[in-house]
Every structure is written in C-alpha cells, then in structure tokens.
Simulated scan of single mutants.
Amino acid sequence: MSTSLEQMLDFARQIAYEAGQITLQYFQRGVTVERKVDESPVTIADRAAERHLRAMIQAAYPDHAVLGEEDGLSGSEHATYRWVLDPIDGTKSFVRGVPLYGVLIGLLREGEPVLGVIHLPALAETVAAAQGLGCFWNNQPCRVSSISTLRESLVVGTTAHDYERYAKEAAFQRILARAALFRTWGDCYGYVLVATGRAEVALDPAMNVWDAAALLPILTEAGGTYTDWQGTPTIYNHEGIGSNKHVLPELLALISGEEQV
C-alpha cells in the first residue's frame, strides 16, 4: 500500500472508525474493568480495538512498527514509520458511560509526528490531519479560534486536581484565575475542542506518547500548537498543552511566573 500521507490518512480514518465501532459494542453495557500495574483502568473494549488496529496496520504496512498502549511495540525499533495507538483515550469516561472518549491513531516518520486521527465513536465525530494537508472535522476543514486573550478563553483540562504532584499547582491556579471559563472536558476531547475552534486551551499535567502522538499534527494543521508546559512542540516530555496559538505566549508567561494574575 502507498506510503503517501494522503493515502495513509484515509487508511487511518477508516480503521479508527472500525475500532470505534468495536468499542460501541461494549459502551454503556456494564463492561468489566481491570487494573493495570499503574492502576489505570483497562477493559475488553480497549484490547479488542487495539487488536483490530494492529491487524489492519500490519496487513497494510508490514514493514511499519506499531506502538500501542495495551500491547507495546511490535516491528523494528528502527522502522521509518511507527504507528502509535491509544484504542480508548478516556477509559475512565468510557467505563462510566460518558461519551467523551476517543480512538487515537498517530503516525511517526523518523520519530516525528506527521499524521493524527481522533475518532469519537459515541459522538460520531472525527478530526484528522496530516503534515501539509490541513485538518478536517468530519471531512470539512477546521481551524482553531481567533481569540487572543485568556480572559476571553475557554480552558479545558483532563483533571482539576493533582497538579501539585507534577509541580504545576501554582501555574494551574494562575491560569484558572485568568481564564474566562474552565471545564474538565478532557482527554482527547479537549484537544478536539481546541482544533475545531470551540476552546482555546487544553491542559494535561501528565501524558504518554500514545496520548500525544495524534495531537501535534492535528493542532498544528488546524493552525494551533501542541507543546509541553515550556512551549516546546514535542510529544515526548510527558505533559501537554494544546492551544489556538494566539494565547500561548500569555499562557507560558503565567506558567513561568513571569506574569501574575
């Protein structure tokens, strides 16, 4: 199969949808929850969706590597392309019957994120992007908002507590005090809101690479940014901020303490 980004994006959209349909078979059905070593939840839906994604990728691109949250790395560590999968981003929402969860597919080329898909099965929404091709929300072009100040901004976050565990509590409180509105519409859904112009900032004090790989190309192609809390565009620093770009300097000044509320 072709390795053009456009064709790989179409492929990723399709398999994200298929994996999402698998998750819906278990959604709001009282699925059994297990605990991983780190105490995070996992269900049969996570595992079944990831197995499907892996099988489809390995059949279409046998020379590509695959890294998934549930089953780790398969294929060569030195492969040019590596698919990065989170079959259910927002498992805690999923197990409570809340529809704000998504299937995440990212693609790295020589370690650089170049393609991302977020499919929200229970909401029937998909946001997809690839480097140089733009960002699309349900197949229509989408952009971040043009709001330029935090005092006008909607800030969303996966959590409203535990920032002190990551030495971010003071920065978080400064952001809260400045923002027009804060809501805990988190996990991948928060970044979908930023990419589609419905929120200005999404915050996560802790991230894994499978949480982040799809986000950087999506937000960049939508005209925004995905960075760590120091403003570096990376998926590897175990933390994340999505923004509409316009409010990022103000946000970073608050985080560093250079600017006070």
Rank of each mutant, 00 (worst) to 15 (best):
D204H: 10
G20S: 07
D89G: 01
A128H: 04
V201C: 07
A65C: 15
V209F: 01
A12K: 11
A48V: 06
E125Y: 02
I218S: 00
A59G: 08
Y17V: 14
T232Q: 08
A60L: 06
T184H: 04
T158P: 03
V127S: 00
L252D: 02
D89Y: 00
P113V: 05
E70I: 05
Y191A: 02
A45M: 08
L85M: 12
R13P: 01
P249V: 09
L104R: 03
H78S: 13
Y166T: 00
D10V: 04
V114S: 09
T43M: 08
G20Q: 01
H78M: 08
D204C: 02
S256V: 02
I175F: 06
E164F: 12
N139V: 02
M1A: 13
W229I: 01
V84G: 13
T158R: 12
D71F: 15
P121F: 07
L120N: 10
L85K: 11
I44N: 04
E77P: 05
L73S: 10
A180H: 11
A130D: 07
L150N: 06
R109Y: 10
T220H: 11
E77R: 15
D63I: 02
A122E: 08
R109Q: 15
V33H: 04
E239H: 07
H238T: 02
V84M: 06
V201D: 02
V66Y: 09
A253C: 10
Q28E: 12
M1C: 05
P217F: 04
F172Q: 10
F27C: 06
N244G: 09
S145L: 05
N138W: 13
R96K: 15
G190V: 10
F172I: 03
A214G: 02
V33S: 05
E164N: 10
E77C: 04
M207N: 08
A180W: 03
Y101K: 06
I235H: 14
G132Y: 03
V42I: 15
L254C: 07
G102S: 15
S256C: 03
L9I: 09
A129G: 01
Y81L: 14
V84Q: 12
V42P: 03
R178P: 07
Y61G: 00
S146R: 12
I118Q: 05
D63S: 14
R165E: 12
E110C: 10
A180Y: 06
E239L: 01
A79G: 12
C142G: 09
S74T: 15
L5N: 07
W185Q: 12
G257D: 11
S243Y: 09
P87M: 05
I147L: 13
F182C: 03
E221P: 07
V261L: 07
A213D: 02
G116N: 06
G102C: 08
S2E: 14
A130N: 03
H64P: 05
P41H: 11
S2W: 03
V42G: 07
V95L: 04
H119I: 01
G190W: 11
L181Q: 13
I218F: 00
T43F: 04
L107F: 08
T225P: 00
R47N: 10
L150M: 12
V117M: 05
Y17L: 14
T80L: 14
L73H: 13
E69N: 05
R183L: 12
L203W: 12
A129E: 04
L73C: 08
K36V: 14
R178Q: 15
T232K: 06
G197Q: 07
T234E: 08
